[in-house]
Design a protein around this nucleic acid. Structure first.
Lengths: 219, 219
DNA sequence: GGCGTATTACTCGTTGCCGAGTATACGCAC
DNA sequence: GTGCGTATACTCGGCAACGAGTAATACGCC
């Protein structure tokens, strides 16, 4: 159950993993991460970068090395990782690899409100998304082939994970589209009827009322 | 490219999808969503609930119906959906079903810093997570079986998606564990050596330096 | 029938995220 | 040699998000 970290933003983990090799200033960290292609794994937002770096420093996970000023450029503060930072990096990695916290992908949210649209439109939309997913797969494959000859497999693992998940998504979406489009999805008529007339099938109303009560939660 | 919405929090979508049937007060919305099992799809945080409701109202996606006070209980404000809210719900659903915005699951972040740990420890950690994923699969399956006889398939789609993704994750993790544990992962010796001695394999240093420069980004 | 615990229903204050803005330097075209 | 686009490097303010707190009612149970 994901312990509360002094710096919670995953960008912090990315930063720690970058400066573990050598001291850097913030902008350089971001550049290095992009260079390693880690911007696939961590969202790099410029606004957050400096906030997170400041927080890491505040909690002594990184420390200021020097603050140089070249010409009239803005001041650049170089940071190095501390022992505490190294420990946090390792501990955080352990947590992320061993725990499976629930996440809330946007597509799942979309599926859960799918019924507000009609089945025909849903098929069209899903086809669009399927195409997008396929483009992503192609991109990821290209990236993998590009790097595979020179980069040790260890550092391509996330890409491989990504690919596996994207392929699973493609397969699942494909079969859903076929079920709706082919008319084999049970309850399709009720859905279409509801959408065309606005009538809510009787059993749903019932369900809606009752479920408020009956839902026993664990936790 | 995910348009900026007046209310960005997905909790807002969930609320709209709940009060589309009948007016409710905030606490009731949360209860209804939990009753429908939608807390698998949307994270319900009490702190956010009221903020989001207030924002929805501010932007006229929902409107106040009445504000009753029973006994000396805190005041309860009941909201209904507006036409604008209905339009937003539909538009938002369309977006989520058709677009594939990149997401950043925590496990991917973990994989991307995996190298800071040794291979043996990684195997142990992955086994833990695999067990957790398997528990989740079992739970999801149980939930599906419980509801399948009474709830139309349409409303179980997200659960099915969830299951498909979890199974894909299980399969992928299983094979990764085997590759590391069985010693067939290429570069395993280098990894182990690096971890035991702290030495960074020469080709990695090189890569680290060069990649900062060479990475040509698209976008 | 009194007491603890759960549930209902909401408020508030803090944290921190991040979009948008700023300002210099550099390359290269003409 | 000067204009202009792009890369470098960072600052800041507003607001969304949420944890923790509050306080009343209902409920179980000995």
């Amino acid at each position: 159950m994901a312990k509360r970290r002094r710096v919670g933003n995953l960008m912090g983990l990315a930063i720690l993993s970058a400066i573990v090799f050598r001291p850097m200033h913030p902008y350089e960290m971001a550049g290095t991460l992009r260079g390693w292609g880690k911007d696939r794994d961590f969202e790099i937002k410029w606004g957050s970068l400096y906030t997170v770096v400041r927080n890491l420093a505040k909690h002594d996970l990184i420390a200021e090395v020097e603050s140089s000023r070249e010409g009239r450029r803005p001041e650049r503060t170089v940071y190095r990782i501390t022992d505490e930072g190294r420990a946090e990096l390792v501990d955080w990695a352990r947590e992320l690899l061993s725990e499976a916290e629930p996440e809330y992908p946007r597509f799942r949210a979309g599926l859960s409100v799918m019924a507000v649209l009609g089945p025909d439109e849903v098929v069209t939309l899903l086809r669009q998304r399927l195409a997008a997913v396929e483009r992503e797969i192609a991109e990821a494959q290209a990236a993998h082939e590009l790097h595979a000859p020179r980069v040790p497999r260890l550092f391509l693992i996330e890409l491989e994970y990504d690919l596996a998940m994207l392929e699973a998504e493609r397969a699942w979406m494909g079969s859903l589209i076929e079920e709706i489009d082919g008319g084999t999805l049970p309850g399709l008529d009720g859905w279409r009827h509801h959408h065309e007339t606005g009538e809510v099938p009787a059993e749903m109303v019932e369900l809606a009322e009752e479920s408020v009560e009956t839902y026993g939660d664990k936790k």
